[in-house]
Design a protein around this nucleic acid. Structure first.
Lengths: 355, 355
DNA sequence: TTTATATTCGTTAACGTTACCGTAAATTAT
DNA sequence: ATAATTTACGGTAACGTTAACGAATATAAA
C-alpha cells in the first residue's frame, strides 16, 4: 500500500499483543466501558501508560463516523452596535477551518436588549443535540440556568466577552473587565489635569446588579482611589440605547453639572456620546470608550473621541471555538481564563489596527 | 458499527457507481494518474464537479500513512536580542497543535550576524526531504538562492518577518516594514516639537543595499516629507551590536551634533541606545524603537524609551506554520501578503500587551 | 445437579481512501 | 496471421479504531 519506511508506531494491536488479550478488550479499557476484569484492566492500563499510547485520530474519526456539532450563542449585531460582528467572524473563520474535520457550528443570535430572546435561543440549543456550546453570558441569571442544563447533559461550554467565574466552564476568552476599567482610568489621568472631574457613563437597557459593565466601573474607581486622585467621579446610567434618549439624559446631567472635563463610556456606545458632544459644541471634552467600530473610528479621526480600548473581539470567537474543537477531538483542555490584550487605539495608530 | 442516522455523504464509491467504473478508476482521476481513457476521465471529472466531492481527510490520511515534515529556518535568539524567541514559540505552539495530524516540524537556527550560517542551515534543509519550509529571509541573496532550490523541488515556502516580493512564496506573515517606519515618524512628530531634529539609527552587522531595515527608514522619511516637516533627519549606521561599539559610535556622533531631540532606532536594539542615554544623562531625549522585549520594557518603565512598535512576532510564526499546514493537508491557500497589526506600546499599556 | 443469569473476552465487519496487482481488450510489431 | 506490448480498467488488502455480536466461562438460582 505504501512506500513508507519508518513506522514503529504502537496501536491497539500492539497493546493487545503485549497484554495477551484481543483488541476489543483494549478498546473497552480505552473507552472505560464495562466488561473487563479488574486484573486485565489494570494490566492493560499499565501497558498503555508505559507505551504512552496516543490513539490515531484519523482512524478513530473514520471509524466512529460521528459528526460533532457546536452551538454558538451570542448577541446579534445591530446597526446601533456592530461590535458583535467581529466575534461572529472569528467563529465563522474557525468553522471553516475545522469543518473538514467534520465539526459543524450553528450560530444562535439573541437581542442584547431583551433577556427573553437569550432564553428562547438557549432553549432551542438544548432541544437539539449539540456536543459543545460557546456563549456570551450576557444575562447572569438566564445564563446560569442555561449552563446548568449543559452541565447536566455533560456538554462543555466556553464563555466569551464576559466571564461568570466559578461555573466550571471549559474556558473564558475575553477582557479582564476590571483591568479594562483600570486602563480607562489610567488613560483619563494621562490626558486630563489631576483636578478635572470625570463623568462615567453606562449605556445599556439591562444594567442589573451583576452586569459586567459594572466591573469596568470598579476598575476605574480602583485606579482613582489607588492614585489618590482628588477629582470627583460622577456616574450616569442610561437605560436606553436610542440617541434621543441618550442626548436627553446627558442634557439633564449637564444642566446641573458644569465642570466635567472628561467622559468615560463603559462600552461601545461611545459614538452616541461623541455625537452629542459634537452637536452641543463640547468636542473639547476628553472622551474615552470602547471598541474598534466604524462609527467610533470616525469620531476618533475628528478628535471627538480621544481613546478607544479594544480587546480582540475576533479572536474571542475564534479561540473559543478552537478551544472546544481541541477539547472534543484531541481531549486537550485550554487554560481556564484567557484574557485578551488590552489595546489602546488613538488617532496615531487606528489605521494599523486589526480587530 | 454505528448508531448514526443522517449520512448521505458522497465518496469515491458513489462517484464510481454513477460513472459505471470501479473506485480504482475514480482514484486514478482524483490523483491525475495515467491509465484512464479521455472519455471516462472527463465523465468522472464531471461527476466530481457536480457532486462537489470533498475527499475524507481521515480516510485519506489513514490510508496513505505518510508523515509530512516542515522545516523552519530563522535566526536564533541571542541574549543581546531575544526577539526571535517569540516567533519560535509561535512555531512550537503550531507544531503541538498539528502534530496529532502527523505533521512534524524541525527548526533550523542561524546566526543573524553571519550570512554563512544561514547558507549552511539552508543546505541542511535541502539535503533532507521536507515537504514545506518556513523562513525568515534575512539575507536577500542567500535566501533567493535557497528558495530557488525549493521552487525546483516544488517545495512550498512562506516568509515571516520580512518579505521578498515577487518570489512566488506561498505567503508572507510579518510587518509592513514601510508602514512601520511611517508609524515611527508619526509617533516622533506626535511627541516632539516640529522644529526638533531627529536621529535615525540602524544597528546591524549586515546592512546591505537590500536590507529590510532600510524599508523602515524609507517609511520615516516618507512621513517627514509628506508632512513637510522642516527638521533635519540625521542617520547613523552602526555595524556592530556590542554595546561598547554602539556607545562609541553615538559618542562620536554627538561630539559633532548637539541639537538632537529625538532618536528612532529601526530595530529591537533600542535598549542599547537607551542604556547609552541613561549613562550619559540624556534620558530626556525622545526615544522610539521596536519590539516587546524585557530589556526594552525596563527602559519603557523608566521613561528612557517612549514608544515601542511591535508586530506580533508570535503570530508570525504561528500563522506561517498554520498556512503551510492548511496548504499541505487541505489544499487551502492563504492570502499571499499578511501584514501584522502595528501595535504601539507605551508606559500606559505595556502591562496588557501580549506579543 | 441442572438451569438461568452475569461476567469476561474474542472475532469480525465497517469507516473511505490508497495503491498494488492482475487481466481483458486494444494497439503495435513481427 | 500470431506474438509482444501498451492501454484501460477491476478487484482487493491495508491503514487503525470502533462496536456489534456471539461465545465461553463463572456465578447465582432452582
Amino acid at each position: 500500500m505504501k512506500e513508507n519506511q519508518e513506522k514503529p508506531l504502537i496501536g491497539v494491536k500492539e497493546i493487545a499483543r503485549r497484554a495477551n488479550v484481543s483488541i476489543a478488550t483494549v478498546d473497552r479499557v480505552l473507552h472505560k466501558r464495562s466488561g473487563v476484569s479488574k486484573a486485565t484492566k489494570e494490566k492493560i492500563e499499565a501497558i498503555i501508560a508505559e507505551l504512552n499510547y496516543q490513539p490515531n485520530i484519523f482512524a478513530r474519526t473514520l471509524s466512529s463516523n460521528k459528526t460533532l456539532k457546536i452551538a454558538a450563542l451570542l448577541p446579534k449585531a445591530s446597526p446601533e452596535s456592530a461590535f458583535w460582528n467581529a466575534p461572529l467572524e472569528g467563529i465563522q473563520q474557525a468553522a471553516s477551518e475545522i469543518s473538514p474535520y467534520g465539526l459543524g457550528i450553528d450560530v444562535f443570535l439573541f437581542d442584547q436588549n431583551d433577556k427573553n430572546t437569550f432564553e428562547s435561543q438557549a432553549n432551542a440549543i438544548l432541544e437539539k443535540d449539540y456536543q459543545a456550546v460557546l456563549l456570551a453570558p450576557m444575562f447572569m441569571a438566564k445564563a446560569k440556568k442555561f449552563i446548568q442544563s449543559c452541565h447536566q447533559s455533560a456538554i462543555p461550554y466556553v464563555f466569551i466577552n464576559s466571564d461568570i467565574p466559578g461555573q466550571d466552564s471549559l474556558a473564558y476568552y475575553g477582557p479582564d473587565l476590571f483591568q479594562s476599567g483600570y486602563m480607562g482610568g489610567h488613560l483619563l489621568r494621562y490626558i486630563v489635569p489631576a483636578s478635572a472631574n470625570v463623568l462615567l457613563v453606562n449605556i445599556s437597557k439591562e444594567i442589573d446588579a451583576h452586569h459586567h459593565l459594572l466591573r469596568k466601573e470598579e476598575g476605574v474607581r480602583e485606579y482613582f482611589s489607588e492614585h489618590e486622585l482628588s477629582q470627583e467621579l460622577h456616574r450616569l446610567d442610561i437605560r436606553n440605547t436610542d440617541y434621543v434618549f441618550i442626548a436627553k439624559a446627558l442634557d439633564q446631567f449637564f444642566a446641573s453639572q458644569h465642570d466635567i472635563t472628561a467622559i468615560f463610556v463603559t462600552n461601545s456606545r461611545v459614538s452616541s456620546v461623541a455625537k452629542y458632544l459634537e452637536e452641543r459644541g463640547l468636542s473639547h471634552l476628553t472622551l474615552v470608550g470602547f471598541d474598534f467600530l466604524p462609527e467610533n473610528i470616525e469620531y476618533l479621526k475628528t478628535n471627538v473621541i480621544d481613546f478607544l480600548i479594544c480587546q480582540k473581539p475576533y479572536e474571542q470567537g475564534y479561540k473559543g471555538i478552537m478551544a472546544l474543537y481541541q477539547h472534543l477531538i484531541h481531549h486537550i483542555d485550554p487554560k481556564k481564563v484567557n484574557f485578551m490584550p488590552i489595546d489602546v487605539i488613538s488617532r496615531e495608530n487606528y489605521m494599523f489596527y486589526t480587530n
